[in-house]
Design a protein around this nucleic acid. Structure first.
Length: 188
DNA sequence: CATATGATGGACT
DNA sequence: GTCCATCATATGG
């Protein structure tokens, strides 16, 4: 078990998205641990990706996406916050979106933040997991290494499945969504 | 200030 | 599967 290096993120978003699967996302809030296994991710790019916020270049909206690999990028859509990690080279505007987690630790706290009781409903979607982990723009920006949000590596053998991305209006022909096969916490 | 736009979620058929 | 409430942002007058 160890924290991922910044170099981990300085690769193509697709590679990072696949490697993040099976690892653990951990946040500490007031001495309580929130922990979830990453079971679903999506890769996003800059100018060449019409579904990306960075498609039209650097704006206030996508500013975080153009910074250093390993930076947390948070974005609001439909009143939900999306959690991303910047990948690739600085100023390349690549990112990996965390789409779903399997709740591991701190489940009671997640239920409280989500106002839901069913385990499967806690983190099975990009907007759900940010609410369960109490992630908002106010308390979350800056670099991954400096925050109380960490990734813990797992040795789990992953069976990775791919598909088109979900919810985007203009997707790329390539499959850029990755998830762990047969995991019931993947979003629908 | 007014209006449009979602990388959604939840309720419903 | 379909429909739509919701609101942080962007953009135009």
């Amino acid at each position: 078990m160890k924290k991922l290096n910044p170099e981990f993120y300085a690769r193509d978003a697709e590679e990072v998205a696949k490697d993040l699967l099976g690892n653990y996302l951990v946040r500490e809030i007031n001495g309580k641990i929130l922990k979830g296994k990453i079971v679903e991710t999506e890769a996003y790019y800059g100018y060449k990706d019409p579904a990306s916020r960075a498609y039209k270049g650097k704006t206030n909206l996508s500013e975080g996406m153009w910074s250093k690999p390993g930076t947390i990028f948070i974005y609001n859509v439909h009143n939900h916050w999306m959690l991303n990690f910047v990948t690739g080279k600085e100023n390349e505007a690549q990112a990996v979106l965390i789409r779903a987690l399997e709740p591991i630790e701190g489940v009671d706290l997640m239920k409280q933040y989500r106002c839901k009781d069913k385990l499967k409903d806690l983190c099975s979607g990009p907007g759900k997991l940010t609410r369960a982990f109490k992630i908002t723009k106010e308390e979350f920006h800056g670099n991954l290494a400096n925050l109380d949000l960490v990734i813990i590596r797992s040795k789990e053998i992953k069976n990775i499945e791919t598909s088109h991305r979900i919810g985007v209006t203009r997707d790329l022909p390539k499959h850029l969504r990755f998830f762990i096969k047969n995991n019931e916490f993947v979003s629908k």
